[in-house]
């Protein structure tokens, strides 16, 4: 495993394949032409500017942001206690509970979306935004449980016992000694959940209504109607947003080891 040159060749190709397309989008979004082409025809900011003027993008961006934050928060509110119970209590049916809360990751998203549409939204007249919120929470839950569980496994369980022996209540012990020690994991779970929800398509595919559309769904629709580079510009902007988030998360908590 010491071969230097072949190593670098493989890594160069890998990076080119994984990251190259991103540079292509960035370049395409500065095109001056009116159709998608590469190399871009001329240079302009007009498509980047256009992104900010498309009203539906603004609305769908706001919805996706809102969903990603609220659903991830809800998934953590549900996920942290269940992870804690699974790692610190000897529960009967523990594996069943784990399977139930992880199942949204195994069932294909499009099936989830369809099921929710047919059996919650249609029969009960549930609000689309509410259904999106519930679906995204369910979707993020497995990630939250996985990342938080891993952090808890890496944390010695005797520290809570020590805290209780020193006079803390069980709940107090959780907030005083456990939570501070799994902060990194919770932050990582939040970022992973946020990104997962924000980029999610299949679950949201059927859960759209008049004026209610998540950003990625909106982009797909826009692409079908128009063949101009504004989706490239929007894609580039979103990619920069993700890179920024990941870069900061990597700096502060070493994000990639939680993925």
């Amino acid at each position: 495993m010491k071969a230097r040159l072949p190593s670098y060749a493989v890594l160069t190709l890998l990076v080119l394949f994984l990251v190259g397309p991103f540079f292509v989008i960035v370049a395409a979004s500065f095109s001056a032409g009116s159709t998608l082409a590469f190399p871009p025809q001329g240079f302009s900011f007009k498509w980047v500017e256009k992104v900010f003027t498309v009203e539906s993008f603004q609305a769908s961006f706001a919805l996706s942001m809102f969903l990603a934050i609220v659903a991830t928060f809800a998934a953590l509110v549900l996920g942290v206690p269940v992870s804690y119970a699974l790692s610190r209590y000897r529960l009967p049916l523990a594996e069943t509970v784990r399977t139930i809360v992880s199942s949204p990751i195994i069932v294909p998203g499009i099936v989830v979306g369809l099921a929710l549409l047919r059996y919650l939204v249609v029969p009960f007249g549930m609000d689309i935004t509410l259904s999106l919120f519930l679906a995204h929470t369910a979707l993020v839950l497995p990630y939250a449980v996985r990342v938080v569980s891993a952090s808890l496994e890496n944390l010695r369980s005797d520290i809570e016992e020590a805290a209780v022996l020193l006079g803390s209540s069980r709940i107090g012990a959780f907030f005083r000694v456990v939570l501070p020690n799994i902060r990194g994991g919770i932050l990582a779970a939040f970022i992973l959940g946020f990104v997962t929800s924000f980029n999610q398509v299949p679950v949201s595919l059927f859960l759209t209504g008049p004026g209610v559309r998540t950003l990625p769904i909106d982009m797909l629709g826009y692409m079908e109607r128009t063949y101009d580079p504004s989706v490239a510009a929007l894609s580039a902007l979103l990619a920069f947003m993700s890179i920024g988030i990941v870069f900061i998360a990597e700096r502060f908590i070493g994000f990639s080891r939680y993925v």
Binding site: P81, V82, R90, L91, V97, P104, V111, V112, L116, Y119
Partner: peptide, 30 residues
């Protein structure tokens, strides 16, 4: 490891019920 099962279930159930109602039941009906 804590022994108190009721406490453990109280922590685990909200998430399990949520996933079951929002997710597993509709999928099974589908």
């Amino acid at each position: 490891m804590f022994q108190n099962r009721a406490e453990g279930f109280a922590l685990a159930l909200p998430a399990a019920i949520f996933a079951a109602v929002i997710f597993i039941v509709p999928v099974i009906i589908l």
